[in-house]
């Protein structure tokens, strides 16, 4: 059964800066997407959910319990932060072992959980390397691994797909769906609607600390699709990729950049599908996808007018 997450007049400010402003919601879905631009308050909300921050006003509760000081509740939470920070000299296996033991798993169970989780996130082959030698994608997977190795009831993931290659996205999305199917409640933040759409139909849309919309991805997507969408693609062979993309009728424009190219499309779904397919083929060396914010900004402007 999924956790019921309730916020009542939830506000958080840091000095003069209001990060979250009077949020009220109640959700019990298996997978919940948190959508908003950088600075919208997504990370703050997620930190409040796992008790890393205390509300300035109002309250947030998980099944009626408050995460900040309830150790037994925190035992059931897993959190993957946005920032790319690690104990760089540890190996992934050492890191996961300590983290799972700190979550209360006995030594043998922690070792088993570590091995299984490394396998699930595709890091078994790199289990003994120092973390500092891992690629960005591997580090993202490791962040997710440390959040789910102890099998939490609530998994809170702050931008877990940022900067991942298409294959990495597919694999992590599959993992998230498996966890949700096994009864884990997952909150996942992104500034890219299409990332969330692949996982869930339930989203919260945050804008400048306010809850702008709550509900179906489809409705929000329709709004977004009315605006052209820009995707920055990091790749080794941008000219060849550009030639492939130029054949698609929904692609309006292609700009070449130092790291690859930026493609502007009228139909983001189809564009992501095409990039995923080309990425999976592996011939063009696509290593990262980043949606640029300008189309989301247009939707926010529309919704707030």
């Amino acid at each position: 059964m999924n956790l019921t997450i309730r916020a009542r007049n939830l506000s958080k400010w840091f000095g003069q800066v209001v990060a979250l402003n009077d949020l009220t919601f109640e959700l019990a879905a298996p997978l919940i997407g948190l959508l908003g631009q950088n600075g919208a308050g997504k990370s703050t909300l997620l930190k409040l959910l796992v008790g890393l921050l205390a509300p300035s006003r109002g309250e947030v509760s998980l099944d009626g319990r408050h995460p900040r000081h309830d150790r037994r509740l925190r035992r059931q939470l897993g959190y993957s932060p946005e920032l790319d920070r690690f104990y760089e000299d540890l190996s992934p296996a050492e890191f996961l072992l300590v983290m799972t033991r700190l979550h209360g798993l006995p030594a043998e169970a922690a070792r088993t959980a570590t091995q299984e989780t490394l396998e699930r996130v595709g890091l078994s082959a790199h289990a003994q390397r120092p973390i500092r030698t891992l690629s960005h994608g591997m580090r993202q997977r490791l962040k997710v691994a440390q959040a789910l190795a102890h099998r939490p009831r609530l998994l809170v993931l702050d931008e877990p797909l940022a900067g991942l290659d298409p294959l990495g996205r597919i694999e992590l999305n599959r993992l998230f769906r498996e966890e949700a199917a096994a009864g884990c409640t997952i909150w996942i933040s992104s500034h890219v609607l299409h990332e969330l759409q692949a996982l869930t139909d339930t989203v919260l849309l945050l804008h400048r600390g306010r809850l702008l919309a709550e509900g179906s991805v489809r409705r929000i997507r329709d709004l977004i699709d009315a605006h052209p969408h820009r995707v920055a693609v990091g790749c080794a062979r941008p000219r060849e990729l550009g030639a492939e993309l130029a054949r698609l009728d929904h692609v309006r424009r292609i700009e070449f950049t130092a790291k690859g190219l930026v493609v502007e499309t009228e139909r983001a779904d189809e564009c992501y599908d095409a990039l995923g397919r080309l990425g999976a083929e592996g011939t063009l060396g696509i290593h990262s996808l980043d949606a640029l914010d300008d189309n989301l900004e247009a939707v926010f402007r529309y919704l707030t007018q």
Binding site: R72, Q76, R153, A182
Partner: peptide
């Protein structure tokens, strides 16, 4: 794998 309940207490 199923999510954990409260069977395992936090570490001592």
């Amino acid at each position: 794998m199923n999510p954990t309940g409260e069977s395992n207490p936090p570490p001592s």
